[in-house]
Amino acid sequence: MNQQKTFPHSSVGTEVGAAPLRIAVGVLTYRRLDGIAKLLDVMTRQIRHPDRPYHLTMVIVDNDAAGSAKDTVEGFDQTGAYNLIYVIESNQGIPFATARWIQPPGTDLFCFLDDDEWPVDGWLDAMLETREKNRADCVYGPVQPVYPENPPEYFIKARVFERKKNKDGQRIGYAASNNVMFDYPLIRSWNLRFEEKMRFTGGTDYLFFNQAIRRGMQVFWADKALVYDIVPANRMTWKWVLQRQYRLGNTFAVSEVLHGNLKRRAYRAVYGATRVILGLAMLPAILISPYWGMRALTHVLRGAGMVNGILGHAYQEYKPNAAH
């Protein structure tokens, strides 16, 4: 059964004479108690600029039917730093869980963070500053990997877990749900939702923001809005890394199958095939350079994922107990 609980707080950080924005931060969690505890703790220390006041609500959606995060989340109901909403969504899958995010009335801005991440103390204000300077509809920020002790040296040198960075204030053509803020009424006006047909494939956030950008949403990069992301030891294996590269390419193609036209699907198929050919040509680099070797493998696997996705294969990375 779905459950919802709201914990009110006093309006900390509200400045007289200004109209505080109403900001909600949505976090989907599934049996990561330490991660959600760290995130909620860090969010109590967000720096507030007097010129950018806001009311903050943390919205936690627990995708575990047993409600395993309930006690952990309730431990933060008296911090006074934010309103706190806890919801259980027993129907597993990212699209179903995101549909359960409950926004307080009048929400102006909505943010996504992951339950294995935590932001710097100036994160939210940096997002607001970039939004203000650029009149942005959406703001996206950097995610820095945090490795376990004694990680495999090859993957560090290959920079396989590092994400693309941009110039502060630069307009970009993409966003994802791991460190983002967007105009909530604008998204509501377009009636955009995470695609339920991609329940276990991943990539629903890519499609969500891609659809918004096609409709005209302007996305800007906030370099100071840094978020740290834990890289578990069990992800630092060749099997996981190569499957993830294939899955990324596959979800791009599946998105086009579901919501693209014939021209876009043809482009994705040709682009994928080209990446496979390029990657195979670069593959000998794996013997001398971890970085260029991984770039070659990325081209091959993402390209193969795209081609197979266009041909009808949807890789179910997140399906429970699935044998990939």
Score class of each variant (00 low, 15 high):
residue 143 V to C: 07
residue 144 Q to H: 07
residue 144 Q to M: 10
residue 147 Y to F: 13
residue 149 E to T: 10
residue 149 E to A: 12
residue 149 E to P: 10
residue 150 N to M: 15
residue 152 P to G: 08
residue 152 P to M: 07
residue 153 E to A: 09
residue 158 A to L: 07
residue 158 A to N: 14
residue 163 R to T: 10
residue 163 R to V: 12
residue 164 K to D: 13
residue 166 N to F: 13
residue 166 N to G: 05
residue 168 D to K: 04
residue 169 G to H: 05
residue 169 G to D: 13
residue 170 Q to F: 03
residue 171 R to Y: 06
residue 173 G to V: 08
residue 173 G to A: 14
residue 174 Y to F: 12
residue 175 A to S: 10
residue 176 A to C: 08
residue 176 A to D: 05
residue 177 S to C: 15
residue 177 S to K: 01
residue 178 N to W: 08
residue 179 N to S: 11
residue 181 M to S: 00
residue 181 M to D: 04
residue 182 F to R: 15
residue 183 D to Q: 03
residue 183 D to T: 08
residue 184 Y to W: 12
residue 187 I to Y: 15
residue 188 R to P: 00
residue 188 R to H: 13
residue 189 S to W: 01
residue 189 S to Y: 06
residue 189 S to H: 04
residue 191 N to A: 15
residue 192 L to P: 00
residue 194 F to Q: 02
residue 195 E to L: 00
residue 197 K to P: 02
residue 198 M to P: 06
residue 200 F to H: 13
residue 200 F to M: 05
residue 200 F to E: 10
residue 202 G to I: 14
residue 203 G to K: 04
residue 203 G to L: 08
residue 204 T to Y: 02
residue 204 T to P: 02
residue 204 T to E: 06
residue 206 Y to M: 12
residue 208 F to A: 02
residue 209 F to L: 09
residue 209 F to I: 10
residue 211 Q to L: 13
residue 211 Q to H: 03
residue 211 Q to A: 05
residue 213 I to E: 11
residue 213 I to L: 12
residue 213 I to P: 06
residue 214 R to D: 12
residue 214 R to C: 03
residue 215 R to M: 15
residue 215 R to K: 08
residue 215 R to S: 08
residue 218 Q to D: 10
residue 219 V to W: 02
residue 219 V to H: 05
residue 219 V to I: 14
residue 220 F to H: 09
residue 222 A to D: 09
residue 226 L to R: 11
residue 228 Y to W: 06
residue 229 D to I: 00
residue 230 I to Y: 07
residue 230 I to T: 11
residue 231 V to N: 05
residue 232 P to Y: 09
residue 233 A to Y: 15
residue 233 A to V: 14
residue 233 A to I: 09
residue 235 R to Y: 09
residue 235 R to F: 08
residue 236 M to S: 03
residue 237 T to G: 15
residue 237 T to R: 10
residue 237 T to Q: 13
residue 237 T to F: 09
residue 237 T to A: 15
residue 238 W to D: 10
residue 238 W to S: 06
residue 238 W to L: 06
residue 239 K to L: 08
residue 240 W to F: 15
residue 240 W to E: 11
residue 241 V to P: 03
residue 241 V to S: 02
residue 241 V to M: 07
residue 241 V to I: 14
residue 242 L to V: 04
residue 243 Q to G: 00
residue 243 Q to E: 14
residue 244 R to L: 11
